[in-house]
Amino acid sequence: MVEVYTTAPASVEPDGSAFRRRLAEVTRWTDAAGHTGLLVYSDNTLIDPWLIAQLILERAARAVPLVAVQPVYCSPYAAARMAATLTFLHGRPVHLNLVTGGSRQHLEALGDGGVGHDERYERLSEFATVLRQLLESPRPVTSTGRHYRLQGASLPHRPRQPPRLVLSGSSEAAVKCADDLGVLRFAYPVPVRSYPAGRSGIRLGVIARPTAGAAWKAAHDRFPGDPLGERRHRVVAKLSDSHWYAELAEVEASGVYWLHPFRTYRTFCPYLVGSYAEVGAYLAAYFARGVESVILDVPDAEDDLHHARLAFDAAG
């Protein structure tokens, strides 16, 4: 059966209490839907993902945070210790999403702008290798790599069940990194007719209803036209060195596959819009090509997950 995550809301609420209420809602909805957990993504505009993960674990009965881990933000030891700490405190594992950062401006702001795209994935591979050793090795870890050096390092509480590692990216360097590490790779998918076969995960939004007309009305109500957003998208498409952003920016969307929310800078993933049967058939085509896990976009309401579940059911 295909595994499903949702996505935690971005920390853009007017204050912390409003954000905590919104996060608690989405966490509760995810739990009620029986999904695996919530993606917690991270960049320079958002609050610390580890603290969001702590809030999720406090509120969820089953769902776990899938925390974005970016080498520019922390060392592999700091990430391993935080993951182990959360597992120790809550008795449940966290999942870790390995990322390199896609905004050139954000990387430059942190003094990392001179590191090339492929080199960031080479560093991420070493980061993840050291991270995994710290979390899994019964002995202190010594590492003398290019980017990270440890001498007899160990964690205060090594988890009995190590965190699951996944990786996000769609470039050749990302594919190689995921293969070298032996982890599932998530991508923002192109239309299924062009989607490469092989074991993978995808991130997208789903707006499904009993009829196509009702689904498209809900889609346009949620994502109306936005000329300013379109201009921001065009600027980002020129400045970003992320392979996936450039790839999606060139895609010709049609039918169930919808890119309007992406091209108005409302979200970063494509959407599938249509009846349960239409969306289910499109999902089934992805599954037939090797997709085994899906991260859904941030739900707008609890009903979104109910409708999405019926589309997944239709996919078989």
Rank of each mutant, 00 (worst) to 15 (best):
A174Y: 09
D226L: 00
A311E: 02
H157I: 04
R232Y: 15
D179L: 01
V130M: 10
A315V: 10
A68I: 08
P65C: 12
R185F: 14
A68V: 08
A212T: 13
D300L: 00
P270W: 10
V67W: 13
G198M: 05
A80R: 07
V69G: 06
D48F: 05
I52G: 03
G102I: 06
A311K: 09
T7Q: 15
W50C: 01
P210V: 06
A80S: 11
P210E: 14
D48P: 01
A187C: 08
P270C: 13
F127N: 05
R234K: 14
V251F: 05
R132Y: 05
A24L: 04
H117N: 06
S137G: 03
L89C: 03
R21Q: 13
H307G: 00
G255M: 00
P227M: 02
V69R: 04
L89W: 12
K238D: 05
P261Y: 14
R20M: 01
L204G: 08
T7A: 15
P299R: 00
S242A: 15
Y77Q: 10
G316P: 00
P196K: 10
H307E: 12
T267L: 14
A214F: 00
L96W: 08
K217C: 05
H147L: 03
V72L: 12
L248A: 10
T85R: 04
A63Q: 09
V190I: 10
T45A: 13
D304L: 03
F268C: 02
Q151E: 13
T129G: 12
P189Q: 06
Y41N: 08
Y276I: 02
Q133M: 10
L134M: 07
E3R: 11
N44T: 04
G102M: 02
E126Q: 09
R21N: 08
S17V: 01
S275L: 01
K238P: 00
V206E: 06
R164C: 07
I295M: 15
L272V: 09
P299N: 02
A63V: 03
R28L: 04
S125M: 03
